[in-house]
């Protein structure tokens, strides 16, 4: 059943990471990603990796969920890893025909694999520990300065909220309509690409109709509740930086400083 698909991977909890303000998490995540790519030798790479693993442990979420998110892009990791072996300079380690494997190539492959893996896992920390509504709120707050350029930040955040709310509703609706058409003999499973696309028309049209009806109702419901865009709007949940955020910031700054120092005082790897 479609409706069993869980959207968003938020896993409620009470860990230190869960308690961080969503804005801090977004900003720190960006910083981590930058520093993952800034690390130039094995020592700085090890430092940022270990720091990331520490953060992952702090979320108190079973490590197998992180492995699962890696599995999704396992192919990409392996593929880019292998590809990178053949690029690079330095000592030639192996040569066969036109294939040459160099020391730099090996370094490149290891770096790319670890970087992508750490990147994916540390990004999962954000999605695992932050509820979708906190995420959209945080994005709205962080993008607020952009409204100077007449970008409708509130509207964008509102659309994200509504989209997140209605995706499960539409999945269920799709499920129902597909079943209803199957009961009238629709065949979604056989035939070539064109036949299959054509078979979807009896699903897509009712889905459009129902989404318009839904949008209409929702607009009325929002009007009834005095919705007037972002003007003079307050929020029930006030975002506040806490001690946890300060701690998170200090920890991360130490890690980043470490990465810079290790980069400066130890040689970069051959690429």
């Amino acid at each position: 059943m479609v409706r069993d698909v869980t959207l968003g991977q938020f896993m409620p909890g009470h860990s230190l990471i869960h308690k961080l303000d969503a804005r801090s998490k977004i900003l720190l995540l960006i910083a981590y990603i930058v520093f993952i790519f800034l690390s130039e030798n094995y020592f700085s790479l090890a430092l940022i990796t270990v720091a990331s693993l520490a953060v992952i442990l702090l979320t108190k979420i079973n490590f197998k969920f992180y492995l699962k998110s890696l599995k999704v892009i396992l192919f990409v990791i392996v593929f880019t890893g292998i590809l990178n072996i053949f690029y690079g300079s330095g000592t030639v380690l192996y040569e066969w025909g036109f294939i040459t494997i160099t020391e730099g190539g090996i370094n490149n492959a290891i770096f790319v694999i670890i970087r992508i893996a750490v990147l994916v896992m540390i990004s999962s920390v954000l999605t695992f520990t932050t509820s979708p509504s906190d995420l959209t709120d945080a994005i709205e707050k962080l993008l607020k300065p952009l409204s100077v350029f007449h970008i409708k930040v509130h509207e964008i955040a509102m659309m994200m909220t509504i989209a997140l709310r209605f995706i499960p509703v539409f999945l269920e609706e799709t499920d129902k309509i597909m079943n209803a058409q199957k009961a009238r003999g629709a065949d979604f499973e056989s035939g070539n690409v064109f036949q299959r696309i054509k078979a979807l028309i009896p699903v897509l049209i009712p889905l459009f109709v129902s989404s318009f009806r839904c949008a209409n109702d929702l607009a009325t419901a929002m009007e009834c509740r005095c919705y007037n865009g972002g003007n003079n709007r307050t929020r029930m949940k006030v975002m506040k930086f806490s001690l946890a955020d300060l701690f998170g910031l200090m920890f991360s700054l130490l890690v980043f400083a470490g990465v810079i120092l290790l980069n400066l005082y130890l040689p970069a790897v051959v690429r």
Binding site: E173, K176, N179, A180, K182, A183, R184, G185, P206
Partner: peptide
């Protein structure tokens, strides 16, 4: 089997999709 055991779902009007009522009834 589905043709022999015809099923009308809840709120079946949400499954209408053709240009005319005639064509819609003729879908099955």
């Amino acid at each position: 089997v589905r043709f022999k055991a015809g099923m009308v779902f809840q709120y079946p009007e949400y499954q209408l999709f053709e240009e005319t009522v005639y064509k819609d009834i003729a879908y099955g």
